[in-house]
Each structure stands twice: as structure tokens, then as C-alpha cells.
Design a protein around this nucleic acid. Sequence first.
DNA 1: TGACAATATTGGAACGTTCCAATTATTTTG
DNA 2: CAAAATAATTGGAACGTTCCAATATTGTCA
Lengths: 349, 349
Amino acid sequence: MVKERVTVIDIARAAGVSKSTVSLVLQASPLVNEATRAKVNAVIRELGYVYNRGAANLRQSNAKSKIIGVVVNDLTNSFFAELAVGIDMVVQSAGYVQFLANTGESLDRQREVIASMREHGISGLILSPARGTEASDLKSLVAAGVPVVNVVRQVPGAKVSSMISDNHAGAHEAVTHLTGLGHRRIAFLGGFPDTAVFNERFQGYRAALVDAGLEASGELVIGSAPSRAGGVAAVERALSLAVQPTAALCFNDAVAFGACDGLRAKRMEPGVDFAVVGFDDVIEAKTAVPALTTVSVDPQGMGRRTAQLLLKQINAGKADAEAIVGSVRLVIRQSCGSAADKRERLALI
Amino acid sequence: MVKERVTVIDIARAAGVSKSTVSLVLQASPLVNEATRAKVNAVIRELGYVYNRGAANLRQSNAKSKIIGVVVNDLTNSFFAELAVGIDMVVQSAGYVQFLANTGESLDRQREVIASMREHGISGLILSPARGTEASDLKSLVAAGVPVVNVVRQVPGAKVSSMISDNHAGAHEAVTHLTGLGHRRIAFLGGFPDTAVFNERFQGYRAALVDAGLEASGELVIGSAPSRAGGVAAVERALSLAVQPTAALCFNDAVAFGACDGLRAKRMEPGVDFAVVGFDDVIEAKTAVPALTTVSVDPQGMGRRTAQLLLKQINAGKADAEAIVGSVRLVIRQSCGSAADKRERLALI
DNA sequence: TGACAATATTGGAACGTTCCAATTATTTTG
DNA sequence: CAAAATAATTGGAACGTTCCAATATTGTCA
């Protein structure tokens, strides 16, 4: 079972041409005669030749390997899985292949993974940075002229393009919807307070409360892991307050689902006894019961736009950073009850 | 902004040594003097050198690039996301980097992605094959001596190792649990009937019914997409039957969640009015309300074992295929009601 | 001090490809 | 039919690394 690597030279010998000709065939050059091309291709198939991109890249240090690296911080969150699928759609049709890696919020891992992708000569990188990523972590990459687009989270000070969603506006719209339904005590549930995304959504939440003439009470802001389990814990704490909230804007959909679970565990029905709004509009939001009212970020669409941004940058060759803020819209479903409940709630006051 | 690539020769010149010495430093060879090593490393940092793995691999065609390729057929299914995370854990601690790619069940895409990974000289491949994958699709890979492990699904006739879960036993155990609770009309919901996994689970379902002295009625087997939406549709059809089932084994957890949603939409409470059993034990199964009774496949654990299998094969260098069937166990939670309901149900007959 | 071993360092060939300039074969043109 | 134009093919140098064998430096001991 000795594996001898098949090279262009083997092909050349077997086809009775020179290695240069084989190389031209591989690049689909128009310079080569139709008959020879067919002959060479036949031999290639016959001998089971595998193109050695390493060797090729060595020679043509300019033309990169048709690979886009995608690095995300939490693959178990389906938001990122869908983001990746969105990226894949456009990356694919542009003739690239996407290699995805997960950091699980580990900075060390992120460094390793990015280094490894770089060594393999990726054409560009889409990064949802792990918490605590600094501009210096990306510096060498951009200095080397590798196009980078940050997504979901920004890295302060880094001169790279970014695609984030309008968290402030989304949270504002969601809370305004809740106040419009007559809610006066509205909690903000879940998320890590030291992240930019948390902060943007929280600011939008607070601004909407102020706009509605309500005061933002600190005890109604309850951080937690941005996961389903975190949501359960957060809503539990919210319900243990002396004066309970009647509604909550959740950091993301995972937290919102957790909040629904937590409510049911306390024999309360989400959408009836308590209004829940999520953030992201994950695919399950529509089919869950009750269907989740949530701020739609459209992860797939976001992935597509991010990929387009990156491709534009790859093709242009220039590197002036561009920050796109994706618009966002509130999708009203069943988890907040209807306006009919409003009278009832107001009557209680 | 002209990017000149920094090479070992530049380093050598700047450090006043030969390129060979720099190479030795890069490989952390013990042959080089401590002082020179420090000097060289300093220069490397200073000039922002990036290791060119392409060139390295070219020379040492044996030692592969420390990369494990993972190709899955549906990244939006969180089962695969968790599988990938499990793989990552062991792959990572073995000093490898995982590159993940998604095929979305497209055979063409799968071909492209595998080819691309191969060109980059992956050390091994873990593949959850797209539907319709044939042994010939893997032939060239194994012929070239690249270790391959199939996971979740097998490819008939392919001489590669595989790691699948004991679908027959799991389904059997689940259904036996249901018959033990007194259920007599048990549906099998979701999944595509033309897949091996479906078949194995279905056979386990049928065998358990027979063992319990019940006959398996065809109308109770309702296929659908193996997704949440598919589960909603399937349970809907089940409830429209003249003689309704009182329980269901679902193809996977996603279908089971969908079934719960569908039940609620019809004002039935899963776990009380209807027993639901899932398959996979996805991470949300525990925190959902009601907590899902399901056959635990432990995707992370499965990922870990798969990765171990692959690493073993990479290190051994030999390629004798090994088929591991992961054991599986029923995790009883709240979605089936308790034995207390059994008397009630039997009383009705 | 000379002989030997141990420790550090090095030049050059090789890996599989692409590119360039040069060459050969074929066709067109005056 | 020679000359020019075009089409097809080719050998060799380069890309950045590792490996090998060889050399240079230092240390040890009788």
C-alpha cells in the first residue's frame, strides 16, 4: 500500500506532452489544442491525479486559494449556524469554498484557528469575534492585506469592515410595542453586560422606556448566559421580585425560549400571563408555541450580505473599511398577547 | 501598501544565521543553541513572519497539515453543530485544527468541498454523508490513503470506518417504554423513509410493537422532513386519523418539538394528553417544557468518539475499517406522562 | 597538546506547480 | 513559395520550505 503521489510530470509523461502543457490544461487555458486537452484530461482521470494547491500557491503568491474562512464564537447557537449557511450561499456561487471554525469564546483558540487559516492562504476572513478580542489580534492579518469582515460583534479600533445589526433600533421598537400594549414594568433579560451587543440592545431598551415616560429600574435588568438555560434562570429571578414585571425583552431568542420554559414551570402561560419578546428571529421562532414575537435579524440574510461585503473587498483589492448596519424589524407573533389584553391590563391600575 | 512576503531567508539574513537554522527554530528542534533560538524568534516577531505551510508540505509530503476536515449534511440541525463541537474537543487537544463545511444534502457540493479539503492536504476526514452518497464518491480518497470516518450515516460498500448509533435498540427501548405505560396506538413520526437511519429506527419501532403483541399499522407511520416544521405537519396528520394514536416515537428531537407545538396548537398538552418521545437528546431537550423523553445519542460524546477513531487511524497509518455502534439509552423526562396515568388509560379500554 | 566527542550551524538539492521566453508547427498572406 | 502571422508546445527558473550530509565550533580527557 505505498502511495506515490501523482504529479503533473507523471501526467505529462503518460500523455506524451510537457508538464507546461498539463499545467495549461489545468488552468483551462485557451492556448491549448482541443485534442491535447481531451487527451490530458483523460490521463488525469485515469491516474487519479490530485491538484496540489500548496505547490501552486507557492509559485503564484498573488492568486489566493479559493477559500473563505469563517470563524464564529459559538456554533451551538443556531443563529451562527444559520449565519454560516447564509454566507455559504453567496460564497459558493462565487466559486469559493467556506471553511468554518468554532472558537467557543476562547481567545487562544481563536488565535490558533486564524493562524492556521492564514497559513493555508485564505482569500478572506469573516469573523464573529470571541469576547475580549482586541484590534491587535487582527492587526497582522490586515497588515498582510487579507480582507477581513467582522460580523455580529465589532472590535473597537480595528480597521476592518463590519456588518452588525441595528441593535438599538430593534430593542427600541420592541419595547415601544410592549408599552403600546400597556405594559409598565418591562424587564430586560439575559446576555452578558460586558459585550457591545448587550449594551446596544440595553440602550435601546432604556431609551424606549424613557420615551414612554417610564423610568428604567435597575432591578429589572437581569443578565445571564445568552442561552436557553440562562433564560430560565433570568425569568425565575424576575418573578421573584417584590413587584413583578409583566413583560420582558430578552437578549436573544434562546433566552426568550428559556424564559417561556421558566414561565411554564411557574404555571404561567407566555403570551397570556406574561409578554415575551425575543431578538434574532431564529428559525424556530415561527413554529414555537406560542410563536415568538421577536426582532428579526434574519441571520441568513445577514450572512449573505456579509459575504457580499467580503467578496467585494476581495475583488477590489483595496481595504478601506466599511461598516454596514443591517436594518431590523419587529415581527409580531403570539408571545405578547394582543391589544385586546391591553384594556384589561389598564383596568387593573 | 506593497506587501512583500517575509520568508525564512529574510529572517536568516536579519538574524545573521542561515535559513537552515531558522527552519530548525521553527520546528522547535533541540539542536539549536538557546541564544540563537531567542535571537531568531525575536526577529520573527519583529518582521511579522508568517509560516508558509504550503511550501512546507511540499517538501515533506508525508507529514500532513495538521487539519481535520469535517463535512456535515445539515448544519442548521443543532445535532450536527454539537457533533462538531464534540469532535473539536478531541481534535483540538491533539493539536489539530478542525475545518467544518456544510453540504446541505447536495452531492455536488459535497464533491466540491471534499476535493477542496483534499487539495489542502487534510490529515483526515469525518463525513456525515449527504443523502445518496455512494462508495465511489469516497474511493479516490481512501485510495490515496486519507483516513476517513463516516458518522451518523453509513455509505454502503465503502471501506471506511464508521461511527453510528444503535438506532434499532434505541427505538425499541423507547417504544417498549410507551407500551409499558399502556399505550396501544403508537405512531412513528417524521423522517425520510429512504434513509438508512429512518429504516433502522423504524425497524426497532416495529419490532417493539410486535414484542408487545401489538400490530404495526401502516397509517401510523407518517414521514416528513426531519425538522420542527415537519413534526408539526406529521402530528397534525396523526391527529386527523379516524382512530387517533395516543403516543408517538419521533424520528428525532426536532420532529418531537414540532409535534409538541402541533399538539398545543390543537389544545392538547404534550405529556398529558399525548405522549411524545424524541431521538438524539439535543441540548434543549432537557430544558424544554415539558422536558423531552428521548433516546440519548449524546452528539458531543459521539463527536468525541468519532474523532478518537479518526486520530487512531491517522496515527496508526493503517486503514482497516472499523465500525463502531454507539450505545444509546432512553432518558425519561416529562413528555410521556408518568406510570400513574397508566391505570387511567387502561381503565378506558 | 592532540585526539575525540559532542554540539551548532550550514549550503544545496528537492518538493509540485506556474510563469516566461523561446521554440516548433501550422496557417495565412503578398 | 517565401515571408509573416498565428497557434501550440516546451524547457528551465522560480516560489518557500525541509532534509541531508558536511562543516565549524566548542568541550573533555589522557
